[in-house]
Design a protein around this nucleic acid. Structure first.
Length: 138
RNA sequence: CGAGGAGGACAAGGUGAUCGCGGCGGCGGCUCUCGAGCGGUCGUCGAGGAAAGUCCGGGCUCCACAGGGCAGGGUGCUGGCGCAGGCCAGUCAGGGCGACCUGAAGGAAAGUGCCACAGAAAGCAAACCGCCCGUGCUCGCACGGGCAAGGGUGAAAGGGUGCGGUAAGAGCGCACCGGGCUCCUGGCGACAGGGACCGCACGGUAAACCCCACCCGGAGCAAGGCCGAGCAGGGACGCACCCGGAGGUGGCAACACCUUCGGGCAGGGGUAGCCCGCCCCGUCCCGGGUAGUGCCGCACAGAGGAAUGAUCACCACCCGGCGAGAGCGAUCGACCCGGGGACAGAACCCGGCUUACGACCUCGCUCGACCG
RNA sequence: UCGGGGAUCGUCUAAUGGUAGGACAGCAGGUUCUGGUCCUGCUUAUCAAGGUUCGAAUCCUUGUCCCCGAG
């Protein structure tokens, strides 16, 4: 797999998955985003990326930008920036997690470097205080 | 030179590098529930003039429907075109010094309603302060009559201005302007121009009800159709054996067979060493329909938490500063420094409208300033 | 994406086309030793821009924002 790619298996793609992470996950605030983190369900990890080997090469990512942040162009831009930052920093993020990045209203003014900074801070915090899979949901 | 007007054409500014995304096709790979899933690589394609708002309309799909009328909704100067509330050309009205722009612009003489406050009076004529004449007297008031010019109220008070006229006045008469009606001319028409007649009768409001003319079924791709595990539901089958009771048939009988009732035994797995006990489990068919982000609808971008992005370099462009230099002058403006890149993201497709917005080109278009 | 509804003081809510009213809140004063209750007074609004009308919160057009339904 490409070292900086973002394949389909690493994306949250259903409303159910988003809701599970947002309801049961830990909340981490950054300057422009509210990030929910929850452990990835076991079955998904066992399936892996579909090459027969279990395990995922990084956390799974979902991005939510609501209408209150802006119109379509601005919202698309924020999502692209988050995905770009994720691609760059995927190697340093802990695996076995699902993340949902919810943009705050101020995120309209964000830049790639700011999102990269948020991503690195988040990675550091997750490594320092890891999430136990047993208390991921409530 | 500045400020405008009209028309046209364009729209991530171009090139390169690196890291990425989505669809389709080719060739390898991995996985398993064998039909897909996931990755790799190569090729190819991948947002707009408004993709936006959803204001009109058409296609498409489902529902309803014999025909006609009423109700309801929409449109509303004229001519032409159109499926369309649109477009083109014109008329009239309004705005602008102007080039030009804007306009839901039918009917108030079919009927109804409303016109607050103020004012005497708000639609049919009337008279508060007044003006004039007459009579009376207590001499500035009362009564009778004439008038509607002046004052006052109001958004609006029954044509306007001027002259004549009169007791005072009044289209009472006249001139001009406005209006009505009729005729002629031009025009397909809205309408325009001209003439005769009428002293003027008919306030406003229809984006109030309404009248007239024309048009209109309802919903929407989350429409609609197809395939469909699992679970729940319904139906059929479930072997084989033993004992006893009742009935029937055959037989001399023992007995055999059939129907029915009661009882027993009956397979596999799990849990304890074993037993008891407890728990779970069959096959086939049926239609409805969920998951499957399934297939069709569905496209020379595309249906999925929804792809066309990020960074860097150079060039071009624009703005500001500086002002070498050019020119008689208004003015133009090299190098250098700093900054900038509009509005905005397809979601069934198409036509029109509206709104947002950048820079460009053309004009024998307009206005202004300055110079010669 | 499609369809529907709405916008009035800080909040909730009225207003046949004719002065934008009420309640709560806020402020000031009074009553009270103080606070509360109570009484009196005051401040504050028609989403924006055009149009129709003598006159618009109301009618019409365009735009902005919010809410609801449909997976």
């Amino acid at each position: 797999m490409k070292p900086e790619g973002f394949p389909r298996r690493l994306r949250l793609r259903r409303r159910r998955e988003f809701l599970r992470v947002q309801r049961g996950g830990r909340k981490v605030h950054t300057r422009f985003f509210l990030v929910f983190v929850a452990p990835t369900p076991r079955g998904v990890i066992e399936e892996g990326i579909g090459d027969g080997n279990p395990g995922l090469p990084g956390p799974r990512l979902g991005v939510t930008v609501t209408r209150k942040v802006g119109k379509a162009v601005k919202r698309n831009r924020i999502k692209r920036l988050v995905r770009e930052a994720y691609r760059r920093e995927r190697g340093s993020l802990p695996t076995g997690l699902d993340m949902v990045w919810v943009a705050k209203r101020e995120a309209v003014e964000t830049t790639l470097t700011a999102v990269l900074l948020d991503m690195r801070t988040l990675a550091e915090r997750l490594h320092r205080a890891p999430l136990h899979s047993s208390k991921g949901s409530r």
